[in-house]
């Protein structure tokens, strides 16, 4: 792994985290925020494979933990599993394909919402599933899918440039 790539990862995690937690209404639509950190984790997992998705997911989750949770490690675990799971789809990764990553990102957002709902709400006896589904989960999934398209394209473009550089330096 080249230094460029490491810097790229650190910067993208930082920028995504800052945008995610920013107070101003960045990208907010109909009162939902797209989950940018999840988009980053899934995208890296998808275009780079399991290992890197896993590490990025872990770092993203850990940042969320440090920032918002009382228990360190819970979000880190969820995010690293997401990064790892999306590494399975790495085999189907083609640079020009856009439908699979979009569907993947929206689907991931939905699964993520289910996980959060189950562990943080249903286990505490808040069981209004349908209302959460309509008000948070589905809008978030749809919106994440749309925003993901842009972020995915940007990340992919940078990744391709870095990969080209790495290949050239090998010879």
């Amino acid at each position: 792994m080249s230094i460029k790539r490491v810097i790229f990862y650190i910067l993208s995690v930082l920028v995504c985290f800052l945008l995610q937690t920013a107070v101003f209404d960045f990208l907010k639509l109909a009162d939902v925020m797209p989950n940018i950190l999840l988009i980053l984790t899934v995208t890296i997992g998808f275009i780079r494979g399991k290992k890197e998705g896993l590490v990025i997911g872990f770092v993203c989750g850990l940042l969320i933990d440090i920032f918002s949770g009382d228990v360190l490690g819970q979000y880190a675990l969820v995010y690293l599993l997401f990064g790892y799971a999306n590494g399975w789809f790495h085999t189907y990764f083609y640079e020009d394909d856009i439908l699979l990553p979009m569907g993947l990102l929206a689907g991931n957002s939905l699964v993520y919402s289910f996980v959060i709902f189950f562990f943080f709400f249903a286990l505490r006896g808040r069981l209004h599933f349908l209302s959460y589904l309509w008000k948070i989960m589905i809008p978030e999934a749809v919106y994440t899918g749309i925003v993901a398209l842009v972020i995915y394209k940007i990340l992919l473009a940078i990744d391709v440039r870095i990969s080209d550089g790495e290949k050239r330096s090998m010879f």
Binding site: K51, L77, Y84
Partner: peptide, 24 residues
């Protein structure tokens, strides 16, 4: 390989959860 990575990182997470629950 990636499975080792997975195991290591999950272990780290579980450790962190354990520490923060029992000795925050």
């Amino acid at each position: 390989n990636s499975n080792h990575y997975l195991a290591v990182f999950i272990a780290v997470c579980v450790l962190l959860i354990g520490i923060s629950v029992f000795a925050g």
